[in-house]
Design a protein around this nucleic acid. Structure first.
Lengths: 205, 205
DNA sequence: GTTTACAAACCAAGCGCTTGCTTGGTATGT
DNA sequence: ACATACCAAGCAAGCGCTTGGTTTGTAAAC
């Protein structure tokens, strides 16, 4: 299963909107705007203009503005959980699995789904408490993939620190890359960046 | 120089507002509200109510709402740069200096100035570009303290990764603690948390 | 192969409310 | 006497969302 096949499977299961459809296009533009300007500073008029419709017409697809934010988050988690799982399944050793997770999350954040991932991390407060609980359930599945790998590494003695703490540190460190990492222009590649994270944790290449 | 003395020196130099004065109290409440609800969701009426005045009266102290945000950020940087410098000066070895920096930043984020530090990190987008440039200049001084210590560690061979990348990773990891770390209730202490960060980088205790 | 039916997608207009900020005036301390 | 700190009232603009009606796509009925 490559990336495109995973995406298509999720679209078929109605877990992710087809980016060619009206709803999918709107969510993509919403993710971009929410990341660039923040949820609060993005108006429904901005969102509508980005897909070329009137602001009122948005509410034919979504009941509220917040529902758009939630949809961006939910679909992003579905997609990235699937991507993360296949990435980790391919690796053979504990260290290789950690590397695969770091590489996959960096790709989520700085690749195609980057806008939506940034929204997921930094616009959390703008969700209602009900929606937060809903999204949190989905996130837990994603997090468990990480925790399993880190716990195994700890048991092997390759990790000195607590798996839960390490995961949280890596969450912050990796998501923060969106504020400074710019792959274009011949700088650090995604693989190079992954190497750096591993080296910071004193895992030699 | 202890923490209180540093604060008093900065107040005397007019770099930080006295928290007992009207302006200082307002900035403290503003930091709390901006962190809890976000800058955009916090109204000038919220800010005024928090210090017990009318919303219009705010504009006697600050010309715009954004100026309040900028003041929170600028004063926080001034204070924490001073705290960081004294922390690093006390340590003797390279590893000890790194530990002192981590410990000091964790204290900034999770201690007294935590609200303001969170605002500094997560409300950046809400600043006008002019203000961003201004605040960035001050941040550069703070960052240089970190980079000097990390570069020395790299030269000693105790650090495998690039100092700039490590600093950015740590910025993300440490600031992210505000979203999950809760010292109260007998969990991890600030020293314990610092140990965990060092252990993640494979520095034994 | 045209007509009819009907839902999905969208527009044009605007309502009610909240927002940041202004204005003109009044206490208060020195 | 004069500046500092505040209040009471409200304005103009922008906000999320609603409403009533029109277009468009699709597919069965004739």
């Amino acid at each position: 299963m490559n990336q495109a096949e995973i995406l298509n499977a999720l679209i078929a299961d109605n877990l992710v909107s087809d980016p060619k459809g009206a709803r999918g296009r709107l969510l993509k533009e919403a993710a971009r705007l929410f990341r660039d300007k923040g949820y609060e500073r993005t108006t429904v008029r901005d969102l509508a203009a980005a897909v070329g419709i009137q602001s009122g017409s948005l509410f034919h697809h979504f009941r509220t503005k917040e529902e758009i934010l939630k949809a961006v988050m939910v679909e992003t988690i579905h997609l990235n959980t699937a991507l993360l799982k296949t990435a980790v399944e391919r690796a053979q050793t504990g260290v290789a699995r950690l590397r695969a997770l770091i590489r996959a999350e960096l790709e989520s954040i700085n690749g195609q789904t980057g806008e939506a991932m940034a929204v997921l991390v930094y616009e959390w407060r703008s969700l209602s408490e009900t929606s937060q609980a809903e999204v949190l359930k989905l996130r837990a599945i994603y997090e468990q993939v990480w925790l399993d790998v880190l716990a195994a590494l700890k048991a092997e003695g390759q990790l000195l620190a607590d798996p839960f703490v390490v995961r949280r540190m890596l969450t912050g460190a990796l998501s923060w890359t969106i504020t400074w990492y710019r792959p274009e222009g011949g700088g650090l590649s995604l693989d190079g960046l992954t190497d750096q994270v591993m080296a910071m944790m004193a895992f030699p290449r």
